[in-house]
Write a protein that binds this DNA or RNA. Structure first.
Lengths: 156, 156
DNA sequence: TTGTGTGCAAAGCATTTGCAATACT
DNA sequence: AGTATTGCAAATGCTTTGCACACAA
């Protein structure tokens, strides 16, 4: 079973109706390789389903978030993003240029499961965010305001 | 040296001017026990410094964020919040009721330092977020939409 | 003295909401 | 058939911006 079907199944299992819009939104999430914003999802879904409204996108994202299928994250800048992959992993985030590096790490996976269990939390997702300055940005003077955050480059 | 002074020092060290407004904002951050929103900071500072503008609060928070002294986080719902404490720690977040439980954990501290070093990232802060359903919310039917997120209860 | 920082008020936008029409189940 | 969901458009607020004045260095 692929991720798209998993998401749809999660909706059905909790009594939510399966509409073509929701299917497309789930597909867009499942196919995304990074951390799409609601706007990005809206654009992607619009291709296959023109006329969909932003409200529907927001609505579905909220539902999926409440179910714990996707996680809403603020990655240190600009807008809301959604993490479509609940697998525990590490984000290394540069506070200067905004570059995000994804990492898999077995220790994080094990540790999150262990901590959640210890507190009686039924874990749906986990992430570890490490903020700092990447190699490139360490070389720049801190007062230099000319360096600006890189723009959104998301999508599937 | 307390946290307030640390923040002020960080500003001075990078050539930013020390204004009474900024001092109060630093103090509000340092005294905060949780994850204050810009609005919460604004309100707190307003007590000691009536007439301060929101623009100033946002401006200073942005500066501190760019310096890596505070971290902007989206904890799964509502608005932007700032983490004034860069010490690596764990947030256990209930997707249902929004309750956030803070945890110290030595493994997380060590692991974050190790991963950052391995990638050449000069770490300023780190956190591990674990999302799931808390004991209380596990008992409730998932489709029950009557449960709403708890409201902001931040402050010093 | 110089240029950064502030306050004010308007602008910009992401997100939410109300309601009638639509379409899952 | 009954009700959740959709689309539309207006409303809501958070956040940003432009500009003239104030003040830290």
């Amino acid at each position: 079973m692929n991720r798209t079907e998993e998401l749809i199944r999660a909706l059905r299992a909790t009594g939510y109706r399966i509409t073509p819009q929701r299917v497309e939104i789930c597909r867009a999430l499942a196919e995304s390789k990074s951390h799409p914003s609601p706007q990005a999802i809206y654009q992607k879904v619009s291709e296959k389903y023109p006329g969909i409204s932003q409200a529907t996108v927001y609505n579905t994202l909220t539902v999926l978030r409440d179910l714990g299928e996707v996680v809403e994250v603020g990655l240190g800048q600009d807008r809301t993003h959604y993490e479509p992959d609940p697998t525990p992993h590490v984000n290394l985030i540069c506070l200067r240029c905004g570059v995000i590096e994804d990492l898999e790490d077995q220790t994080v996976t094990a540790l999150s499961a262990q901590l959640a269990a210890a507190q009686g939390l039924r874990m749906k997702a986990a992430r570890m965010d490490i903020y700092g300055f990447c190699r490139k940005c360490q070389a720049l003077p801190l007062v230099d305001r000319s360096v600006r955050m890189s723009e959104e480059a998301d999508e599937s």
